[in-house]
Design a protein around this nucleic acid. Structure first.
Lengths: 143, 143
DNA sequence: GTGTATGCAAAGCATTTGCACCTCC
DNA sequence: GGAGGTGCAAATGCTTTGCATACAC
């Protein structure tokens, strides 16, 4: 039984087969995935699991602080709560994704806290923009 | 005829009654609104305009650089391109929205550019977090 | 006149909900 | 046995698309 299953059981939730498979997969998540991704991975081991259950389980896990979600340009993605420790840069032209350590965001976070009393969760939304390559490409237009 | 209508006509687009009304409303937009908001405002003056047309017109305006959209916690909002010059802080607990001058974000923007060559559009996504009031409230839990 | 814009209805997609049934503890 | 969990189907909300019609230029 995985750690997530154990935690949920300890907190008084029932562990069903579906939950166990979903928890296992979520615990082994490679980075950031959509509910659909989770469902696909789960379905490979336990076909009859419904997407609805995936949504509900993700919600439960989030409520219990084991996973979090964040927003990319093209929708929400989930990740283990202990792995959300970076910011994402997404190029709006080529779609390239780059990770930035949250440390780099700390000065801003401190600023927002001291000036506005606001405790920012900077990683919750990706940062869009244009990457180096695309700027370079645009600087020398076709023709 | 509003400035937006004029610009579009100059660029070879046809000006229909629908477009003119939509353009007028968008030009007079108070801050950040959803396509639905625009539709509601437009419909007050010209009831038979379809939401579809609002979507298509916003897309056209964005393509022509007259408006932009950005993402809040609860969906996309449009604003005049010349009025997107601030970042938004949104409290995930009480929903409070605060504006921050983009100047305050410049250090981070410069950092991302110099370290990652990334031209960040920081205002495209709001920043979520917890506001002062809610932190205060949470610090002294009920009971 | 002709190509562009519009309205309408329908399709998409991601997510949520209601409800009967099932099963973990 | 009973609360809690699940599957299914349908509803929702937002946005897009196809197509026949209308109208700006």
């Amino acid at each position: 039984m995985g750690r997530f299953s154990q935690v949920l059981r300890d907190r008084g939730y029932r562990i069903t087969v579906q939950r166990e498979v979903i928890l296992d997969e979520v615990e082994a998540l490679p980075g950031h995935v959509s509910p659909n991704d989770v469902h696909a991975r789960v379905a490979a081991r336990f076909p009859q699991v419904n997407v609805t259950t995936v949504y509900r389980t993700l919600e439960l896990l989030e409520h219990e602080g084991l996973v979090s979600h964040m927003h990319f340009h093209d929708g929400a993605r989930w990740h283990r709560a202990d792995e959300g420790l970076h910011q994402h840069l997404v190029c709006r032209q080529c779609g390239l994704e780059e990770q930035v350590e949250l440390d780099e965001m700390q000065p801003l976070a401190r600023e927002l806290l001291s000036r506005h009393g606001f405790h920012a969760d900077l990683a919750h939304f990706a940062i869009v923009g244009v990457c180096q390559e695309c700027v370079r490409a645009a600087a020398v237009p076709v023709g």
